[in-house]
C-alpha cells in the first residue's frame, strides 16, 4: 500500500497505470474462486443446454446430429404453445398483483413508520419467505381447496350452503399462491427506492400548493419507478419458471413451463426437447425483460424532463 502510494505520488502516468494494474490484479485474484465456480457450474451447463437443444434425441440421451426439429416442435406444437401462454399470463397476473399490492406497504413502511421501527417491519415481511416454501404452497392448497379452510369455515358460519368451487385448484389459486410467495421480493426494492427520495422535494411540492395526492403522482411515484421496475423483473422472471406451485396446487392439471421441462427431461428422457423448451422460455423472458427496460428508459426520460 505504502509503495503504491509512493509510486503514485512520484511517477506520472506510468505510476498511475501500475497502481491500476496491481489493483486490477488483486481484484481479479480475489474474485477468481467464485467466478471460476460460477463459470464451471452455471455458465458451462447453460451452454450445454443450448447445444443440446440443437441435437437429435438418441437412445442414451442425445446424438450429436444438428437439427432445428426441437424448436419447430416447441414453437408450433399446440400443447407447448398453450402451456407457454399459460405460464406467461400467470406470470403477468402474479407480477401485477404482487407489485400493486406491495407498493402501498412499502410506501407505508418508508413514509409512515418511525425510522427505528423500519427494520422490524422489513423483518416481519421477510419471515414468511424464509419458512419452508413447500409447506407454504401446500397450505394454500389446504386454504383454497374444495373442503378447505375457507369453504369449511364459511359453511360452518352458514354464509354459504355449498362449497365454493371458483377458489379451488385453478389459475386463480396459482396466482394467489405465487403472489404470496414473491411478496417480499416486491416490497424490498420498492422500499429501497422510496427511502432514497429526498423528502424536501415533497415539501416543496406541497408548499407550491399541490395536494398530497398530486405530489404523490408527480413526484413520489416517478422517483420510485426504478424500485418498481426492479420489483417487476425480480417477480416476473422466477415465477415463469416455478415448478412446485403448479404441481401442488394444480395437481398436474395446470402445468407450466417448468413442469413441461421436467416431464421431457426425466419422464420422457428427451433431453434435447427439454433443452429446447428451456432455451425458448429463457429467450421469451429475455425479450420481455429487454422490451420492458427499454420502454421504461423512455418513460424515465420523459419523466425527468
Amino acid at each position: 500500500m505504502a509503495e503504491t502510494a509512493a509510486a503514485n505520488a512520484s511517477g506520472g502516468t506510468m505510476g498511475k497505470t501500475r497502481f491500476r494494474d496491481t489493483e486490477a490484479a488483486s481484484g481479479l485474484a480475489m474474485i477468481s474462486p467464485t467466478a471460476i465456480y460460477a463459470i464451471l457450474v452455471l455458465a458451462a451447463p447453460l451452454i450445454a443446454v443450448i447445444v443440446y437443444s440443437f441435437m437429435t434425441k438418441g437412445p442414451n440421451g442425445v446424438e450429436p446430429i444438428f437439427t432445428l426439429q426441437n424448436y419447430i416442435t416447441v414453437w408450433t406444437g399446440k400443447i407447448y404453445r398453450a402451456i407457454m401462454m399459460r405460464s406467461l399470463s400467470v406470470s403477468f397476473m402474479v407480477t401485477l398483483a404482487t407489485v400493486v399490492l406491495a407498493y402501498p406497504l412499502a410506501y407505508f413502511i418508508s413514509f409512515h413508520v418511525q425510522p427505528s421501527k423500519k427494520s422490524l417491519w422489513l423483518f416481519l415481511v421477510t419471515i414468511p419467505f424464509w419458512t419452508s416454501y413447500l409447506i407454504r404452497v401446500f397450505l394454500w392448497k389446504v386454504i383454497l381447496g374444495y373442503n378447505g379452510v375457507i369453504n369449511s369455515g364459511l359453511l360452518n358460519l352458514g354464509i354459504i350452503s355449498e362449497p365454493l368451487t371458483i377458489i379451488n385448484y385453478n389459475v386463480g389459486a396459482l396466482v394467489v399462491t405465487l403472489a404470496h410467495a414473491y411478496a417480499p421480493f416486491a416490497v424490498l426494492p420498492i422500499f429501497v427506492a422510496l427511502e432514497k427520495i429526498d423528502r424536501s422535494f415533497l415539501e416543496a411540492g406541497q408548499d407550491l400548493g399541490e395536494s398530497r395526492w398530486a405530489t404523490f403522482l408527480r413526484v413520489t411515484l416517478p422517483l420510485s419507478m426504478p424500485g418498481v421496475i426492479a420489483a417487476v423483473l425480480i417477480v416476473f422472471i422466477p415465477t415463469i419458471g416455478d415448478y412446485v406451485t403448479p404441481d401442488l396446487i394444480g395437481g398436474g392439471k395446470i402445468p407450466m413451463i417448468a413442469n413441461m421441462v421436467e416431464v421431457q427431461m426425466l419422464k420422457q428422457n428427451n433431453r434435447a426437447l427439454g433443452s429446447a423448451i428451456a432455451v425458448s422460455a429463457m429467450l421469451i423472458v429475455l425479450v420481455i425483460t429487454v422490451v420492458f427496460l427499454m420502454l421504461n428508459r423512455r418513460f424515465l426520460k420523459g419523466g425527468a424532463r
Binding site: S26, M30, A38, I234, I257, A278
Partner: peptide
C-alpha cells in the same frame, strides 16, 4: 474493495442464480 476489468459481467454471472428459475439450474 477493488476496481478491475470484467467486474460487471463477472458479478452478473455470480448473482444470476438469484433470478434464474431453479428448474433451469437443476436441469442444466
Amino acid at each position: 474493495r477493488f476496481v478491475f476489468p470484467g467486474k460487471g459481467p463477472m458479478m452478473g454471472l455470480i448473482m444470476l442464480p438469484m433470478v434464474l428459475p431453479d428448474i433451469i439450474i437443476g436441469m442444466s
